[in-house]
Amino acid sequence: MTELLQFVLSGVTVGAVYALVALGFTIIYNASNVVNFAQGEFVMLGGMVTFFAWQAGLPLPLAAALAILAAAAVGVALNKLAVERARGAPVVSLIIITIGASIFLRGGAQLVFDKQLHRFPAISGDEPINIGGATILPQGLWVIAGAALVFALLYVFFTRTLTGKAILATANNRVAARLVGINTDHMMTLSFALSAAIGALAGVLMTPITLTSYDLGVAYALKGFAAAMLGGMGVPAGALAGGLLLGLIEALTAGYISSVYKDAVAFIVILAVLFAMPQGLFGRKSTDRV
């Protein structure tokens, strides 16, 4: 029982990060129909920029804020310089553009920073907390709380603010959005900035647990993409469910079978779900995405 609880706690921690990355995929997908494979690089930037800014003498909270802003700026640049210019190109071309951007960002990080693993201190120390015999790092709780807060804030943003609704409207029907006076280019830029900031926040929160390096973006992009597909691409609730589920499957497989198989089992579960429900767990039928 304790064992199970232990696996669940680590599964939820990792799952919360996957959910944040999946949410980033979802926001950009909704705004532009682009599956942004550079999403993982925002996670990398969050960790790396924070570390180097902190090492240069900035207090940690400021360093983290700087990293999130920097990632948002990179997200905006990605949209303005690459995605927006390729508007109307086939979806495959747009995906290749984002893969190219991710390679570029990884190479850039290797040059600007270095190839080492880095860590900065956790928010509330590294003394494990005991929960019913199982343990969790305080930073794990921060990760979970951070993800919960982001989802809650975004829920409010999309359901209660005019700008949030304008993003939804743009996703729902771009021409109609322009006809009511929405600057859809701005909404796309905003979506990229938001996604990048969320990815970077995930990186900031996770680094004290998993460390960071220039090349960890790919793994997060794949996991986040898998989580988004599992939950239903384009649905925020699906990103949350898909992320948590993926984290749990991995942790349980690693715990009860072997960590060697955790990716394989996760992959099989995802294939099985998508085979039965091609839209993902929470996906809308493609017919009502006009």
Partner: peptide, 13 residues
């Protein structure tokens, strides 16, 4: 302002 052909309302909202 325009009411476009085929309505083009925001169906999800």
């Amino acid at each position: 302002s325009q009411s476009p052909e085929g309505r083009q309302i925001f169906t999800n909202l």
